[in-house]
Amino acid sequence: MAATSLTPYARLPRAHARLPVLHSTVDATGRAHWLLAGRPEAPVGASDDHGDGTSVCVPYDALVVTVDGGSAHAIELSAVTARNPRLDALPDGGFVVADTARVQVFDALGRASWTLDPGGDVDHVLTDASGALWTVQGPAVRRLSLTGGVLGEFVPLPGAAGTADCLSLNVGAHTAWAGTRTGLLEIRDGQPVTVRTGPVKGTHGLAVHGDRLALLGGHGYDHSRLVMCVLTETAAEPVAYGTLVLPDGGELGRRRLVNRGPRLYVQSEPYSEWCVLDLGH
């Protein structure tokens, strides 16, 4: 398989280009969001030393710019506390901003409503179309309500690969997937986790459509390798190998990935534009 080009998807409006990008994502409905520092010199991540050896991040204001098709709008978030923020959107117009061990919930007016304790360090977090949070925490993939209640906890069967080495999380309409260093986990509510072996060690991107699977990444120089697979009961069988490139044919370089069902969204430095690989088309 030759190089596969991404398709342009959404771009940060030029009016906001001077503000530092703290994080960016594409939500469950396909809207693109950028979390921006409130001003170019904003001291995001600054710490307030308590004098006892502990410190907390000084709350700061931020701006969320949303691009939905041909329209764009912005909303201010007040008193953000995440030192290394990860943004996602809620179906009611609100947002969540996650840090390693806590999640702030903001309403549709940008007001901080409450802080959620997910019950452990969070490696990955995505919201689904209902507003629930999917996280990877230690040996389990969890689905949480916005009040912190556990809606589902998914752990592989004894002897199977766990999720402690999970490098990617895909949350689709009815199924979630986790890519680990040793394989692939398929997660359906009310069913045991299905474990499959896979051809890629260190995959960070995955998209699934029917029995077709795309895996992006690998170690070292394989970070842009694209492997197309067919799913069987026990494995993701490779059928073609290639490289994923930018719409203009350029290399990906440093990037941010969001996995949503059949879509793999890719954002390269300086993180002002989202592109997409869509297995559904």
Rank of each mutant, 00 (worst) to 15 (best):
M1C: 01
L246F: 10
S168R: 13
G217E: 09
S47W: 12
D117F: 02
R212F: 06
G220Q: 13
P59W: 04
S168D: 14
A82E: 04
L277Y: 03
V26M: 14
A101Q: 13
V230I: 09
T147M: 06
R181T: 14
S47R: 12
S130P: 12
H219F: 11
T4S: 15
R255T: 00
H223E: 13
L146I: 07
L167I: 00
A140L: 05
L6N: 06
R14E: 12
S24W: 01
R256S: 14
Q191L: 09
V96Q: 11
G162L: 12
G198C: 05
R212D: 13
E76P: 02
L206V: 01
L206I: 02
E186T: 05
E41C: 00
R142A: 04
A240Y: 06
D278G: 02
S168V: 11
A108D: 14
L206E: 11
L22Y: 01
G179D: 03
H204Y: 09
R143Q: 15
T232C: 03
G280W: 05
G30W: 05
A74P: 05
L226V: 05
T163L: 14
R11K: 14
T163D: 10
A3G: 08
R102L: 15
Y60V: 04
A42D: 15
L90W: 05
Q267K: 04
A235D: 08
G120P: 11
G120L: 07
D107Q: 02
G51R: 05
E237N: 07
G202P: 07
G172D: 07
T81A: 12
A89I: 06
V21S: 01
L216N: 04
G261M: 11
R254G: 06
G30K: 06
A173Y: 02
L12M: 13
P247R: 10
P91E: 07
A74H: 04
A98T: 02
L133G: 03
G94N: 13
A72E: 15
Y241F: 08
R256W: 10
V105Y: 01
L109Y: 04
G210S: 00
L185T: 00
L116G: 00
E153A: 00
V230T: 08
A164H: 14
T66G: 07
G202E: 09
G198R: 06
A173R: 11
G93R: 13
T234G: 10
A89C: 11
P192G: 03
P118Y: 03
L151Q: 00
P199S: 02
V208C: 13
N170P: 08
A82C: 04
A214P: 00
A176S: 09
G190E: 02
P139D: 12
G249L: 10
H209C: 00
H174A: 03
R14K: 08
V208G: 05
A173N: 05
W134M: 11
A2C: 11
A164W: 14
G249Y: 09
R181L: 15
V64P: 10
V21C: 01
V245Y: 05
Q191N: 04
L22E: 02
A207K: 12
G38P: 02
G94E: 13
D68K: 14
P43W: 08
A79Q: 12
G51N: 01
Q191M: 06
